[in-house]
Design a protein around this nucleic acid. Structure first.
Length: 552
RNA sequence: UGCCUGAUAGUAUAAUGGUAGUACGACGGUUUUUGGUACCGUUUGUCUAGGUUCGAAUCCUGGUCGGGCAACCA
């Protein structure tokens, strides 16, 4: 052991703080989602970072819902977020809400008004925007900026009491209208919204803006390291300004680059659109990059955490290749998934020299990667089998290790067979292939001395179960749909879902356990879908197996 | 043309003035009752121009390119 992994830049900061005795060696992070959508794989990166840091350095992590905008937030999202964080395997120290601090935030605002550092502005949104100037021109003060403290106090109280309509007034911080950083040009602290809040109900009609809520919430909780994504860098000056003016706990903000994955989108706004416009079934559609979608697809917490570990944490913009995510899930499932046989695109094989009404039960281990095979199950074998259509070729090329007239393969866990002939229907489709088996080649007691290059999977016709199988492909046709001309939805992959209504599976798959990953030998990893029933068993393909076979 | 950021193989990520390494991908091979797994090997990189230094991916200066910032969103 003891193989030192190099630290990412945030771990370096934490270790420096620990070494210098900052905060008495205490580490407290927070994961602060807004409950306005489902968590996605990008959030998983943040979750793994925040919780992982605390775990590594003996600290704790709060789960804090940043619920300061009631018009977008719902309890459904709160519940899904909690479920997803738990499922990933993390435990938060406290479940908190920015809305828990509304009273205190209000008092902070009053304090700033009293210090002459905040004022009530009657301007419209448009007026405020133009008065702010542009990045190259300073903003201009309006008449409201010089209101007296007493008037501001009175007006702000009236805002709270509901005396004004939405948009009629706002509370602004008095910072610097000429600041090169636009966020410092007298940012809004409070706006009026006569909207029902998912937790505070109708108690409030004024709600704090992100900038006046996040840093103060961090300070209230005494968060030591407040980690967010790059786009908040310009907010940091304001974050610090409020903390300094209010003289509260000096939480510090650090920024890292968010995760981007190719062939998908990673914004709650866009994902919500896909859901609302029915381009996908729901937030947990297996094609979605959401945690719930990945879970339904068959991804495991282990694989997702491993992925987050491997992608690293840095400050440069990045675009991770989905192949890394796929590698991680294969890596995990290879070790844990039970092997089963299923024929997705069937063609019938008749074994002409095997007794017609005979059935024998053959044994096959659950997982060759596990010691002892992790147990096993019985496979009924008979003279009529389903095999994969692509495992037979009328005119096989040289290195085709499967079936063609005169070629031999092993039937996995069963016998070696030799292809003698095949039958076509009137339309020229191959409908059946005829083989003879080698009785001495039985798996486990093979005395035939024959060596074959290929092994194929099969299911006994008489014993086969049926199931629906859903094959998924990338949701978008292009690597970065958000960066293309026009609407990102123009680049949706029309073939991202392919349903096979009736595939044949070995009998044991009738007992498939929900939530467990199965490897359909040579076909990929699959898991039971949430809509699966006893009458209509549905499997989702999590990921294909890596395919080293390139034709020709 | 203001401010803030960043730039190392195809994609990520290390090297913190001293041999540019690792992972994924790709390619090739060995093993294999999954064309899977495992194992072995190959391939490709410091944005650019100067400067400091015995020595620069690292420090300095100029340039180039990318991302962000002017929501009563977070």
């Amino acid at each position: 052991m003891g193989e030192e992994r190099s630290l990412n830049f945030i771990e370096e900061i934490v270790e420096e703080d620990l070494a210098s005795g900052k905060h008495g060696g205490r580490i407290l992070t927070r994961f602060p989602p807004e409950p306005n959508g489902y968590l996605h794989i990008g959030h998983a990166k943040s979750i793994c970072l925040n919780f992982g840091l605390a775990l590594k350095y003996g600290g704790k992590t709060n789960l804090r819902f940043d619920d300061t905008n009631p018009s977008k937030e719902e309890t459904e999202y709160v519940d899904s977020i909690k479920a997803d964080v738990s499922w990933l395997g993390f435990e938060w120290a406290n479940e908190l809400y920015a809305s828990d601090y509304f009273e205190q935030l209000y008092n902070f605002a009053v304090e700033l008004i009293k210090k002459g550092l905040a004022y009530v502005d009657d301007s419209t949104a448009e007026e405020i925007a133009t008065q702010k100037g542009t990045p190259t021109e300073p903003g201009k003060a309006n008449i409201y900026r010089s209101r007296s403290i007493d008037e501001n106090l009175k007006l702000f109280a009236e805002m709270k009491e509901g005396k004004y309509q939405d948009g009629e007034k706002v509370l602004r911080a008095k910072v610097d209208l000429a600041a090169p950083n636009m966020h410092l040009r007298d940012p809004l602290m409070y706006r009026i919204k006569h909207t029902h809040h998912h937790r505070t109900g109708d108690k409030w009609c004024i709600y704090p803006m992100y900038d006046f809520a996040h840093g103060q919430s961090d300070a209230i909780e005494k968060i030591t390291h407040s980690i967010c994504t790059l786009e908040f860098i310009p907010h940091r000056d304001l974050y610090n300004w409020f903390i300094e003016q209010l003289d509260i706990f000096p939480s510090k903000q650090y920024e890292f680059a968010r995760l981007n994955l190719n062939y998908t989108v990673m914004s709650k706004r866009k994902l919500l659109q896909l859901v609302e416009e029915k381009h996908v079934e729901d937030w947990d559609d297996p094609r979605m990059p959401t945690i719930s979608g990945l879970r339904r697809r068959g991804y495991t917490p282990v694989a997702i955490r491993d992925f987050c570990d491997r992608i690293g944490v840095a400050k440069r913009e990045n675009m991770i290749d989905v192949s890394l995510l796929e590698f991680c899930i294969r890596e995990d499932l290879n070790k844990t998934a039970w092997r089963r046989m299923a024929v997705l695109d069937p063609i019938k094989m008749v074994i002409t020299n095997y007794p017609k009404n005979q059935t024998e039960n053959l044994f096959s281990e659950n997982n060759p990667e596990a010691e002892g095979g992790d147990g096993g199950r019985e496979l009924p074998f008979s003279n009529q089998l389903w095999i994969e259509r692509e495992d037979f070729m009328e005119e096989p090329p040289k290195k085709f290790f499967r079936l063609g007239v005169g070629l031999m393969v092993r039937l996995k866990s069963a016998y070696i067979v030799k292809c003698d002939s095949f039958t076509k229907d009137s339309a020229g489709n191959i409908v059946e292939i005829q083989c003879s088996y080698i009785p001495e080649s039985k798996s486990g007691s093979d005395t035939s001395g024959i060596n074959v290059k290929g092994t194929i999977h099969w299911v006994s016709v008489a014993h086969a179960q049926t199931a629906e199988v859903r094959l998924y492909d990338r949701l978008f046709k292009v690597e970065d749909p958000s960066n293309e001309e026009g609407d990102f939805k123009d680049y949706l992959n029309p073939d991202s879902l392919h349903i096979l209504p009736k595939v044949y599976t070995e009998p044991d798959l009738a007992n498939a356990i929900t939530g467990k990953g199965y490897q359909f030998i040579r076909k990929g990893y699959f898991t039971i879908d949430k809509h699966s029933t006893a009458d209509n068993v549905i499997f989702n393909r999590t990921v294909t197996l890596k395919d080293g076979w390139v034709k020709k």
